[in-house]
């Protein structure tokens, strides 16, 4: 019983930390984009102010219970994804085969978001949802192929075990996975909806797409969801290719702290890279993005898969 309560407390702590890191990253991201634009930019804690403002707005327009609950649905989905990913080498939930589970869980928040946007009845939201789903379909193919390559190489389908097996050297140091990591990074760009793949939420074409009807507290919880996705997707990348940020293995308190700090720095690095690409490239149209992922990215991912397979059988 006590074990169970401790586990729940740890899960709550982890979720809170992940959310706070995500909100902080939104502020850092705006600062970085502003600096690339040659501006000063907002303060780093701007994300907290924005969410506080949105959650204390006085009126809220609802479009039915699906609209209200869909955001909770996607927020739950993203929290569940975070719990299945080892953060700093610490595994909270997870079992054999959770790599496949995470692939499914990654689709849940996007679907919840789509459900809420669809319930709002705005035509711009409908267009945005359609584009978001097409985008999801496009980036998943190369991403899944790189994940299969990892699973073949490490001969396991558990993310925690993949992290464990990268103790000696991180996956990104093995030549085929350099290629795979480059592919997965571009897929990450699409997952985070940053340019050049930000067509689903294009603000001046379709009035920020799926978010067109969200405001007040709904937009606030949507920003929490966004903060969660930033942490979840970058952590997934770090877990798969950068050994989850694990540098000390002795299990002492210090090793927890150091691993956490390394994890934080690594996801910050990945997020910064994504934002620098976001700040300097224009936007792909949806069919161009689809073509990019299914033609070039999928081809590169496939090459890395075959390479890995040849390495494994030889």
């Amino acid at each position: 019983m006590v074990d169970f309560l401790i586990k729940i407390a740890v899960i709550a702590l982890y979720t809170t930390i992940a959310m706070l890191v995500g909100i902080l990253f939104m502020g850092i991201g705006r600062k970085i984009v502003a600096r690339v634009h040659n501006r000063v930019g907002p303060p780093v804690y701007q994300g907290f102010i924005d969410i506080a403002k949105l959650l204390t707005k006085k009126t809220n327009i609802s479009h039915g219970w699906i609209y209200d609950l869909a955001l909770l649905f996607s927020l739950t989905g993203i929290i569940l994804t975070i719990l299945f990913l080892p953060i700093g080498g610490v595994k909270l939930l997870g079992t054999e085969g959770d790599a496949f589970l995470v692939l499914y869980l990654l689709a849940i928040p996007a679907l919840g978001f789509a459900l809420g946007a669809g319930a709002s009845g705005n035509p711009n939201a409908a267009i945005g949802v359609m584009r978001a789903l097409v985008m999801m379909l496009s980036y998943e193919l190369p991403f899944v192929i790189t994940m299969i390559a990892l699973m073949i190489y490490y001969d396991t389908s558990s993310i925690a075990q993949i992290v464990e097996l990268q103790r000696a050297r991180w996956a990104i140091m093995i030549p085929p996975f350099m290629l795979a990591a480059a592919v997965a990074d571009m897929a990450l760009q699409g997952m985070l909806m940053e340019a050049p793949f930000d067509i689903p939420t294009a603000p001046h074409e379709i009035a920020s797409g799926p978010m067109a009807e969200f405001g007040g507290k709904h937009l606030g919880s949507l920003m929490l969801y966004k903060a969660g996705t930033i942490v979840a997707y970058t952590t997934l990348f770090v877990d798969l290719f950068l050994g989850g940020g694990v540098v000390m293995h002795d299990g002492s308190i210090l090793s927890y702290i150091v691993n956490f700090a390394v994890w934080f720095l690594l996801i910050l690095l990945i997020f910064t890279l994504s934002l620098l690409i976001n700040a300097s490239f224009p936007r792909f149209r949806i069919e161009q993005a689809f073509k990019f992922y299914w033609k070039y990215e999928a081809l590169l991912a496939f090459i890395s898969l075959i390479w890995v397979y040849l390495m494994v059988i030889s």
Binding site: A34, V40, G41, I49, S208, M211, A212, E213, F214, L219
Partner: peptide, 16 residues
Amino acid sequence: YDMERFGMGPMATPRQ
């Protein structure tokens, strides 16, 4: 002048 220093920014829809 960069009004984003004050946390201001343009928004696409009136709801936001």
